[in-house]
Computed example of a mutant assay.
Amino acid sequence: TISAPAREGAHIRRTGEDVVADSVALHAGTVLGHSQLGLAAAVGLAEVRVHRPLRVLVASTGTELVDAPAPLRHGQIYESNSVMLAAAIRALGCEVDVVRSVVDDVEEFRKVIEPKLADADLLVTSGGVSAGAYEVVKDALTGQGVEFAKIAMQPGGPQGCGRWQGVPVVTLPGNPVSVLVSFEAFLRPALLTAMGHTDVSRRRVRARLTEEMSSPAGRRQYRRGVFTPSEREVTGIVGPRGGPGSHLLAAFTQANCLIVLPEDVTSAAVGQEVDVLLL
């Protein structure tokens, strides 16, 4: 029994409904996930040109560092920077080689690191760049193509960058929160850009403070925080989590954002709008 006439064009998929001829199906800089790979195959591409993963050598320095689970002696701490950096860099799609707990000795630093440079696109170090008596990274790389400076930010002031034996180098501070903030501010965008990404910035929103905050004059402060969206606010509310100390790593694990106070702001009141970087 035919109860109704067939509608002209029903149940027919027209040429060009999904992708029109000569149009761009996938733009340069697109991250290739399962749907993007499926589309490439659907338009007849067996292969696409991609940026190869960067090979990053991560090195942590400090005679006081001990690799877990070895027992600690007086004055020692467990090494965590290379674990964090390696995980964060791998999450971006890079290949990572790790050298942990290099002692504060220039010759030993060069002996351990130099043989690995030939296979690296980038060297990232943590520790040994401040103003202490044994700043092994600064001592080893000063005059070798790497420049060191103190950035007007908190945490993460001591920084360095350049080239050593032709390999790009980024030297980060030694405290763990300084390492993570420096990664977010400098290293993450640079790595993504180098691998061809077009969207390299964290989402930035405005939110009202739930607690009063203070910041040192002349420094851009990055504080760990908890952001909560709110329909009644600008975009939401935010409050700091933990103190400003660059050794307070536990608070970072509970944060979902970084609260940014500019260099000319020394205090922010409850209810004041601030910039927030969503992690």
Rank of each mutant, 00 (worst) to 15 (best):
N175T: 10
G225D: 04
V170Q: 08
P262W: 08
R219A: 03
G162N: 01
A6W: 06
M213V: 14
T142F: 04
P262K: 03
S35D: 15
A268K: 07
L261K: 09
D22V: 06
P244R: 00
A10E: 15
R241Y: 04
F252Q: 05
A70H: 14
D67Q: 10
E17V: 14
R73I: 00
E108F: 02
G75R: 04
V19G: 01
G196P: 13
H34I: 11
R203N: 09
H74T: 13
G174R: 03
L192V: 07
P173F: 00
D199M: 03
R220W: 05
L209S: 09
L123W: 03
F183K: 06
F227L: 07
Q36T: 15
L278R: 10
H247N: 12
G236I: 14
Q159L: 14
S214E: 14
L141Y: 04
A133K: 15
E147D: 14
R223N: 08
R55N: 09
I113W: 03
A149Y: 15
A59E: 00
D264F: 03
R206G: 15
T61P: 05
V205W: 04
W164R: 09
S82L: 06
G29M: 06
P173A: 04
S3F: 06
L248W: 03
G242T: 07
V43N: 11
I113S: 00
A68Y: 14
V20K: 13
A190N: 01
V102R: 00
G33H: 07
G132R: 08
D22M: 08
I12N: 00
A269G: 04
S178R: 05
T210N: 14
G33T: 02
A87D: 14
P5K: 12
S60E: 01
T235I: 00
V19I: 15
S267G: 04
L192M: 15
E231A: 14
T1V: 12
A250G: 10
V265N: 02
L117A: 01
G145C: 01
V146T: 13
V99C: 10
E47D: 12
L278D: 13
T15K: 06
T125W: 03
P5E: 15
I77D: 13
V50L: 11
A68K: 14
G271H: 06
